[in-house]
């Protein structure tokens, strides 16, 4: 669950990135966050991850009150969240398998669990045959699927994706969103930032539109794929 109460962010440069934002995303929701470049979408995501703190207001994520959360507890928060970035952020010197297993290793998961869990999530994103490949040997769409598997491997309550389709071919974008939808059906909350309106129109669902740091509208629309 994610809740913003009167949240404002002013960067040290003086830019007001968010203005009294109120927002609630319930467990199991799927929401698109849309808006032009510079609207404050990434700022929203940084707040959820506690990369930055709200200048005013309260942010609640998966039961953590981020204003009160001590530095030392930030890892505990982040273990409940999976993140996907526009630029994939895979480690080039590691295979697909290692890129994903690495995440479980750094949170001190048992070796046995890693050996069974990693192949499973790789199969979920349909890359079982490429487990031993390196990121440079994969297409953009495949790389993003690896990143998705990595976000998933820790079985997070919430997955946030900041323009995950921004660097891949438009027709492959649908694939990524389909995967996210599938993950959402298993109960994981999904928050996906995008400025591809076609994609949003096609899938429909809850749309949160941000402009100049304020929510313009927050509604559920029907998708064109449903008719």
């Amino acid at each position: 669950m994610v809740e913003f109460r009167d949240v404002s962010v002013t960067y040290s440069s003086g830019v007001d990135a968010l203005n009294k934002v109120n927002l609630k995303i319930n467990d199991g929701d799927f929401a698109f966050v849309v808006g032009p470049s510079g609207a404050g979408k990434s700022t929203l995501i940084k707040l959820i991850l506690k990369e930055i703190d709200a200048s005013t207001g309260t942010v609640l994520v998966n039961g953590f009150n981020l204003r009160k959360l001590r530095r030392k507890k930030v890892p505990a928060l982040r273990r409940t969240i999976g993140v996907v970035f526009q630029d994939f952020r895979l480690i080039p010197t590691m295979t697909v398998y290692e890129n994903i297993a690495f995440v479980l290793r750094v949170i001190d998961a048992p070796a046995k669990y890693i050996r069974s869990r990693v192949p499973y999530v790789i199969s979920l994103v349909g890359l079982s045959k490429k487990a031993k490949s390196y990121p440079t040997e994969l297409s953009g769409g495949e790389q993003q699927r690896v990143a998705l598997a990595r976000a998933l491997v820790n079985d997070p309550q919430l997955i946030i994706a900041d323009e995950p389709t921004g660097n891949i071919d438009p027709e492959l974008s649908y694939e990524i969103v389909e995967l996210l939808k599938g993950i959402n059906e298993c109960g994981t909350t999904i928050l996906m930032v995008t400025h591809e309106h076609d994609l949003v129109r096609y899938f429909g669902g809850r749309i949160i539109n941000i402009n100049k740091g304020s929510i313009q509208f927050d509604e559920v629309i029907g998708g064109s794929n449903e008719n």
């Binding site: 991850l49 890892p75 982040r78 273990r79 993140v83 952020r89 480690i91 690495f102 750094v106 949170i107």
Partner: peptide
Amino acid sequence: RKEINIMKYVGATNSFI
């Protein structure tokens, strides 16, 4: 730095890093 960046996002503790 890339590994460390990912480690931070997935919740590795400072000492682990």
